[in-house]
């Protein structure tokens, strides 16, 4: 069936709620309104207000109570309305969701999914365009996924809801309705911790995820580059094997993400490659990202988010080095 990312995620949660009555949804405006992006639309009517819960306006409360539910055998899927507001829940996520398992030597676990729209490109107000993946990946103990297409979104969501771990589920706002894809109506899983090799090539490796996937894809196609494109899909834990295999084959690597450059996911991947495949490289690693400053107001957005031209220039630099 043709689905965009919104309908694919909706379908995944519908299946999850049907197959497991321990799955509950909670968040701001998710029930009656169906979520501000309509990702949970129709689920209130299907599963009732006991399982699809409009909460008071309090992110720390949403995260904290979700952790409590998860500790008690439920499997909550909490929505944070925007990634910028999820920082109000940072303490609960970093201090508790990530640590309960290690704190109790696996005698307790926190099977919770915290979903939130991320990244920009859609001219929103301040705090509606953040790309927070590095923060959540840095702590350890949290699985961090970010699909770039409807198929992966549904499969990753179903996989996440079948696991016994806290999962931070990042949904690029810009890709919610950008395109449709053939997505199975029934249940299936996309493996967590496994990147997607989207395209095969021998001359360079481009590692990316989220909003930059379609941009990279277009640039590689239009510039006729003989590139491996790797869509990470899971940011933490990183699929080192897929990355290293490709790097050893091509010897040239670019990492492209929308989040700001400094101390980001690109830095982690570069360090890992430097440690494990330095002598396979024929050129310095190129990172293409937003500048190292807070996401600007919408009037400046086009100057901030890497565009096709910036990506093309970066890849050109890599090939000429």
């Amino acid at each position: 069936m043709q689905m965009n990312m919104v309908s694919a995620l909706n379908s995944a949660m519908d299946i999850a709620m049907k197959e497991n009555d321990k799955v509950v949804l909670l968040g701001e405006d998710i029930a009656k309104d169906g979520g501000v992006f309509r990702v949970t639309d129709g689920l209130l009517e299907k599963y009732g207000s006991g399982r699809v819960i409009d909460t008071p306006l309090a992110e720390s409360g949403i995260a904290g109570t979700s952790i409590g539910m998860a500790l008690s055998g439920l499997h909550p899927i909490a929505e944070m309305q925007f990634a910028g507001f999820m920082f109000l829940a940072f303490s609960q996520i970093i201090n508790h969701a990530s640590r309960y398992r290690s704190r109790t030597r696996s005698s307790m676990s926190v099977p919770v999914i915290i979903r939130t729209p991320v990244s920009g490109g859609v001219k929103t107000l301040e705090h509606h365009s953040d790309s927070p993946e590095a923060y959540y990946s840095h702590i350890g103990g949290l699985i961090v996924v970010e699909p770039s297409n409807p198929y992966d979104a549904k499969g990753l969501m179903l996989k996440a809801v079948h696991m016994n771990d806290p999962v931070v589920f990042l949904e690029p706002t810009k890709l919610y309705r950008l395109f449709k894809q053939d997505v199975p109506e029934e249940s299936y899983e996309v493996e967590i911790g496994k990147a997607n090799k989207m395209r095969e090539g021998d001359a360079l490796t481009v590692i990316t995820y989220g909003t930059m996937v379609p941009v990279v894809n277009d640039v590689v196609k239009s510039s006729n580059l003989d590139a491996d494109i790797i869509d990470l899909r899971t940011i933490n834990p990183l699929d080192e094997r897929t990355i290293l295999e490709s790097v050893k084959k091509t010897g040239r690597v670019a990492i492209v993400h929308e989040a700001s450059l400094s101390f980001g996911v690109g830095a982690e991947i570069s360090a890992m490659i430097a440690e494990k495949a330095m002598f396979d490289l024929q050129a310095p690693i190129v990172r293409i990202a937003s500048p190292s400053l807070p996401y600007p107001f919408p009037g400046y957005e086009n100057y901030y988010v890497p565009n096709a031209q910036k990506v093309a220039q970066g890849l050109d630099r890599l090939m000429k080095a």
Partner: peptide, 22 residues
Amino acid sequence: RGYEEGNIIPQNVKGYPVIVPV
């Protein structure tokens, strides 16, 4: 219209900028 420059508040207004996180 989406510009930070709209937050340059003259002294006599004695106010602070629009804050979005509730």
